[in-house]
Design a protein around this nucleic acid. Sequence first.
DNA 1: ATAAGTATTGCAACATATGCAACGGAGTGA
DNA 2: TCACTCCGTTGCATATGTTGCAATACTTAT
Lengths: 258, 258
Amino acid sequence: MSQTVARAIEIIGFVSRRPRSLGDIADHLGVHKSTALRILQTLEERGFVRRVPGDGSFGGGYGVGFQLIALGQMALDQVEARSLAHPILRELSERHGNTVHLGELVGDQIVYVDKVDGRGSVAMGSRIGLPAKTHTAAVAKVIAAYQDRADRAAILSRCDFTRYTPTTITDRDALEKDLDLTRSRGWAEDDGEHEDYINCVALPVFDARGKVTHGVSITALRAVAPLARLREQIADFRAAAHRISQNLGWRGDEYGHR
Amino acid sequence: MSQTVARAIEIIGFVSRRPRSLGDIADHLGVHKSTALRILQTLEERGFVRRVPGDGSFGGGYGVGFQLIALGQMALDQVEARSLAHPILRELSERHGNTVHLGELVGDQIVYVDKVDGRGSVAMGSRIGLPAKTHTAAVAKVIAAYQDRADRAAILSRCDFTRYTPTTITDRDALEKDLDLTRSRGWAEDDGEHEDYINCVALPVFDARGKVTHGVSITALRAVAPLARLREQIADFRAAAHRISQNLGWRGDEYGHR
DNA sequence: ATAAGTATTGCAACATATGCAACGGAGTGA
DNA sequence: TCACTCCGTTGCATATGTTGCAATACTTAT
């Protein structure tokens, strides 16, 4: 469509892997040096590329500029996960008849940002905008499980470990173990830990950086679908979560590997 | 230099604040809609912008694309703080005759990544590549002070609070207070906390996102320059730290405000 | 000195981006 | 139902802006 812009973008991609010289760039594009130069000058002026000082061993050249860092942050803020995920949540809910939630990590708590009721919806404590209980909700556990040590600690620090049912996890050590298990098997479970008669599974959603800032949970009445039944459908749930990840710009696989 | 590329970049900047419609974009550039469209198509094809679904209240349009997130990460990795900071460290060292360090936050510890010896250099425990003592080194304290709660906690968790001198801070509460003070006054001090006869001040360095991942420290023999003397020179030290911040892409002021 | 690698400029030729006008669709209000 | 306005899209003639060439200047290595 726009040749020059396409070339400019190609340059940015080329240069992002490692800094390159003008000649390399021109060769890579198959254009004359002067052509590459004038594009580079424009990009440099606006901070999209920068001249990398050649410090001894590594001859300098052009590298990615700082403006891209700032824009990347903007892009992250602008991602409206809810609107990108909603159609998939609806589809999931309709296919299996379950209630589906989308949870988001906000600061050090997990907040419900979307919810699609299933058939025969039951009154549930969850509500869009409300924080999830960190030690019982599967969405919360799956998100916490995929954070690094410091962030996981911050999330757990807000945990009150109130006992709701016999299966509720009521101490930090047990929860840490459950999170480790969650991460290694790739999904979280809630075995009637908040309400006796309700259980859930939840899967991680990866964003463009590979970070888990969202999670999808599938909720069922134990009487309708026991945990074993939900486990059988994990592959399908995971595929849906993966599609949401892809909508968020994630280009790796459904287990978080690039 | 290259009009089309300049327009493309202008579009990205415009769209990064909030999603815009084709018409808005064309008006902003002062060009015809079709012109804007063709640039947008190219940008969209390569993931630099994306169509934002218009969910009810907010009419959609074009927003920043995911490719920018990925490139932003690349750019961060490619920043070689050391080479950008080194000339400034040299200058600082030569002007004041002090030994100057550059510290970097790596994981949850602070590592010395550069060092310029001053006149009459004294044997010091620091060495490029070695981690700094979190509870005594001014660089470490200034970097820790500017992290958020969770990251600060992670850094402090690796602290052993060994006493080296009478002024060494030996418990967590006192260190937290010292970090709060550091942050509010804008620099950190080491009042002979590791070696009786040596003191330091350290200033934060901000990267393109506004995060403090580096710090600059100025070291002096107490006999040569007591803390009071170093404090008099803070303005100059701060200016140098600010220049490093600017080299790293930071566009705010020297106190971290954008 | 010579050579090969950088980056940069002026200029003529033409490929490419441009503006125009017209079209189709979605939404709004009369 | 209509008219109206906003959205994005397409074909086409024009001329603007980009291209490649050749020459220049600088650094570094042989």
